[in-house]
Amino acid sequence: MSCANIQVSETPLVLYTLRRADDALILGHRLSEWCGHAPMLEEDMALSNIALDLIGQARELYSYAAKVEGKDNDEDKFAYLRDVRQYRNLLLVEQPNGDFAQTLVRQFFYSAFADLYWRAMMSSRDTTLAAIAAKSEKESAYHLRHASEWIIRLGDGTDESHRRAQGAIDHLWAFTGEMFSVDDGERALIQAGIAIDPASLRARWLTTLSDVAGEATLELPRNEWMQQGGRFGRHSEHLGHLLSELQSMQRTFPGLTW
């Protein structure tokens, strides 16, 4: 492959699949940054494990997107040869790890959604997406349990951990709205029974959050304003730096096999 950006024919199904693949890859990459640096060895293991699940999901989704697109793109071209404006992930997942509270709150917000999302997607009329959903749902259920337990420990732990967890919730809250919004292309896929309507998951997602936050003695923000843009390639400044690291080998040594 060359080191130039690839062109992607973003038909509604290709775009839909790439968006979910990008979520999984970027969040998996972020979590992998912890490997060797976590607060305890058990968390080095757990965060790496979750990262591996997410990178695995990304690979399946990219491969499917490549198949649907029917050109000569593949998982690595999607991952390594699209620039920041071509990435379609949620703003939430590209946010920096920050401290352990910020990483776990980000994970909690995402996993609480992903768990519901993949379970619902198991009944997609698209059999490949349904199969990926069946595998991902099992993984997300564990990711959610892990994150929820930490939110409770941090919220109801020490004053410092409570303050850090509340700070992370307040900071990341505005990035959660994007999970529930859809565009016209997605609406058509929803009508065709290929995608599910994420808005239908929001009430249950909020219940999960409220239950865990309640037990953790933490509060969910009341502000309604939500940041948008990741799904259309309008990202935060953080993503470019992540991609420059992720893609450095393929951009430096174009077209080689590793």
């Binding site: 990459h29 060797g36 293991m45 790496s48 591996l52």
Partner: peptide, 21 residues
């Protein structure tokens, strides 16, 4: 880990380092 040249290599390296842990 964050610079592995392909997704397959990235996953394998991450799994390896996790094994060391």
């Amino acid at each position: 880990i964050t610079r592995a040249p392909t997704l397959r290599r990235k996953a394998a390296l991450l799994a390896k380092v996790q094994d060391e842990c």
